[in-house]
Structures are given as structure tokens and as C-alpha cells.
């Protein structure tokens, strides 16, 4: 259970109580009405893997899963997540630290440099690989079009995604 960093209700600020599941953990929290989901995850729950870049839905760094689908955490209020199941990048690796095949592929193929955009891209690609077992390059690039990366030029991200596809298919 988290300890909310936001003060309890006063005359100026309205609050809501929300119940949600984050990375398999049931959470009950009191949040300011205007609080964004990304800030809630980062500041209240300490899940700082979700990054905030542009905060208006363009860069994709804050992408998480809401009820099984990728979404911009910066374009969602924490209050809207009441009753939802949220998954963040922290849920990808195994509890023993073994990287998810996508994460390992990003490491192997230099799919990141500064890493700021990476958590969001991983969550979007994880959704693609769940829904489409053998995506072609255009499907990968279409998903990546919802993200901005200023380091890699995207080529190594595509290569990493392809490698993860091959590995996951080989494991079946």
C-alpha cells in the first residue's frame, strides 16, 4: 500500500478514492482529481520506470497498459484508472531479474542509448507481440510511429523487435 504524497482534501483541491490493480498488486489510494496517471504511478507508487516526456500525448514515453491495451499515461487521469488493471514496464522482467525477451533484445541490438523513450516503446511492442505473433516490419514501424526516439534512429529498435519476435517464436 502506498503512502500518497498528495495532501488530504482541503478547501481548494478535490480528491477521489480509487481502487485499481497495478502490476498485479491491488492498490487503494486517494488522489487529487487533476492528477495524471503517470504522476500517480511515479510519485505515489514509486514506479519511476514510466517516463514523462511531452505530457501531451505525442512522445509516447509514458505508455503503459490500461486493461490490456497500450495507452498514454499522460492523457489519462489517475481517477479514470479507478477499477482498471494497469501494467507498467516494471512488470516485464521476471521477479528474479531475468529480462523480458524484448528487453534482452534491446540490450543485444543496441535498441536504446539514453533510454528515456524505452519503457513506453517496450510496452507498445509487448502489446504488438501479444496480439500479432509474427508482425512484419511495417507493423512494427506502425506501432513505433506512436513513439519518439532521438538517439537511435529507430533502426536498432526495429532490429531488436524482430529479434524478440524470432526468439519468442522459437520458444513456442
Amino acid at each position: 500500500m502506498s503512502s500518497p504524497s498528495h495532501p488530504p482534501s482541503d478547501r481548494c483541491v478535490d480528491h477521489h478514492e480509487i481502487r485499481l490493480r497495478v502490476n498485479g498488486r491491488d492498490i487503494c489510494a486517494r488522489v487529487e482529481d487533476r492528477l495524471g496517471l503517470a504522476d500517480f504511478l511515479r510519485e505515489d507508487l514509486g514506479l519511476t520506470g514510466t517516463h514523462l516526456g511531452c505530457e501531451h500525448g505525442v512522445c509516447g514515453a509514458c505508455t503503459v497498459w490500461i486493461d490490456g491495451h497500450s495507452a498514454r499515461a499522460c492523457l489519462t487521469l489517475a481517477a479514470q484508472a479507478d477499477g482498471c488493471e494497469i501494467r507498467t514496464v516494471e512488470s516485464l522482467a521476471s521477479p528474479d531479474g531475468t529480462l523480458h525477451p524484448l528487453q534482452q533484445a534491446f540490450r543485444d541490438h543496441h535498441g536504446l542509448q539514453c533510454g528515456y523513450c524505452t519503457p513506453g516503446i517496450l510496452m507498445s511492442l509487448a502489446e504488438l507481440l501479444r496480439d500479432v505473433p509474427d508482425p512484419d516490419e511495417s507493423a512494427i514501424r506502425e506501432v513505433l510511429s506512436g513513439h519518439l526516439c532521438r538517439c537511435t534512429g529507430y533502426q536498432n529498435i526495429v532490429a531488436a523487435a524482430r529479434a524478440a519476435v524470432d526468439r519468442l517464436r522459437g520458444a513456442q
Partner: peptide, 8 residues
């Protein structure tokens, strides 16, 4: 938009 915005 994008997959991530069409989801919402």
C-alpha cells in the same frame, strides 16, 4: 492518431 491513442 496511433495505436496507443486509438486504444482510448
Amino acid at each position: 492518431g496511433h495505436r496507443q491513442t486509438r486504444n482510448r
